[in-house]
Amino acid sequence: MSEQIQQIKVTIDDQTIMVDPGTSILSAARQIGGNVVPPAMCFYSSLKGSGGKCRTCLVEVSAGSEKDPRPMPKLVASCSTNVMDGMIVKNKTSDRVIDARKGVVELLLINHPLDCPVCDQAGECSLQDLAFEHGASHSRYEFERREFDQIDIGEYIKLHMTRCILCYRCVYIANQLTDNREHGVLKRGDASEIGTFIENSLDNDFIGNVIDVCPVGALTDKTFRFRSRVWYTKPMDASCSCGKCSGNAVVWMIGDEIARVTARKDKYGEVKEFICNDCRFNKKELSDWKIEGPRQIDRHSVISANHYEKAAPIHTPLLNKA
């Protein structure tokens, strides 16, 4: 309480909130929560420099600020535009936004293989959710889709570039979690691909986290590939004593077996505590983990269907604050 930060007022879809200066529109919307939150495919709050690429979080700014209430002429990416005092933002209430977002979803899907029936990410895929909410029921694209060969990057990770939407999250995470730059984007335009230079393997204790940050099924866990649909597994909060990471994870169980281990994601699909490769890929015995209880999956997609729907009340920090 030593220094009082002057909070500023922002209105998103007719809901007003006071936020700290320097907050992006997207995080202000997340503080309000509910329907006003724009979808985000590439933005990841803990990764520096991420965001602005997928254009699904476009919003309309109908008044720039208290001082300068002119509307912004273009739709802006809410993840990388900071709020100004008195800004008025339209998300769901703007037809322009709905239309543009539908366009972005259509464009994201034209080169996506739509192989959800055989994709491990199905059920927890951001693109699937996005397409379900904003997409059209059929595609107007009548040409061959872009295809790549599948690549094994390292012992545990499969790169299926055909499904990639080039959000760059995995590039940022590899750059920011590891010492050396290990992979990046090669080529340009719609031929760009995520890759390592001359098929090097990604070899780092924390590199498994690229699987968790991937919004689609482009990077998958080879220890879990084709084992089960995710909605048939039971997620449990679990912890272990690990020297490298916090050891807080989620284990996804089939019966008494641990099928896979992931980090804990919040309701926007973001991981706050990254876990190490050892916990993720090697600790597959029940004895390795202390099970804490059922994992509340706070996502509206199929993954949360028939999972502990009547479990403990959903943790909502905003309500608690009020």
Binding site: G52, K53, C54, R55, T56, G103, V104, L107, L108, I110, N111, I165, L166, Y168, V185, K187, R188, G189, D190, A191, S192
Partner: peptide
């Protein structure tokens, strides 16, 4: 196209 943002890339 650099391929960074989706509308232009696709």
């Amino acid at each position: 196209s650099c391929g960074q943002c989706s509308p232009c890339r696709e």
